[in-house]
């Protein structure tokens, strides 16, 4: 499923996009976690087709994604990073979005859309 469609499903809006071609990139997996060691435990082979869905909006969500070779993060509950963290995201060429949906609602919609868990 391409990111543009995922964003539509989640009614997500752009916070920062480093690479506009990302919108047409295909994603197959989603890593869902608020604690970053949980995200780091989810090492799936389709790293470049995985995005991070999280309620953690500080710099660690961005650094964790970078460690996992993930360049797209969607934040739930309308959260957006503070300016100081946004600078880190820009430096790391991250693509950041936010949805008003709760984690529960977002996960339900993504599951229904055929996205798979990044748990190995």
């Amino acid at each position: 499923m391409i990111l543009r469609e995922i964003l539509e499903v989640l009614k997500a809006t752009e916070v920062h996009v480093s690479d506009t071609t990302i919108l047409d990139k295909d994603f197959t997996h989603v890593s869902v976690a608020d604690l970053m060691s949980d995200a780091l435990a989810m090492v799936c082979s389709a790293g470049d087709k995985t995005f991070l869905l999280t309620g953690l909006v500080n710099a660690q969500s961005i650094r964790t994604a970078e460690v996992l070779d993930i360049n797209t993060i969607i934040y739930v509950r309308d959260k957006t990073p503070q300016d100081v963290d946004l600078i880190i995201g820009k430096d790391m060429n991250m693509n950041l979005f936010t949805t008003r949906l709760s984690m529960y609602e977002a996960c339900g919609l993504l599951y229904e859309s055929g996205l798979q868990t990044a748990t190995k």
Binding site: D34, L35, M36, S37, D38, L40, A41, N58, Q60, T64
Partner: peptide, 8 residues
């Protein structure tokens, strides 16, 4: 800050 999952 998102740490302390006990998975480290």
């Amino acid at each position: 800050l998102g740490f302390g999952a006990g998975m480290g």
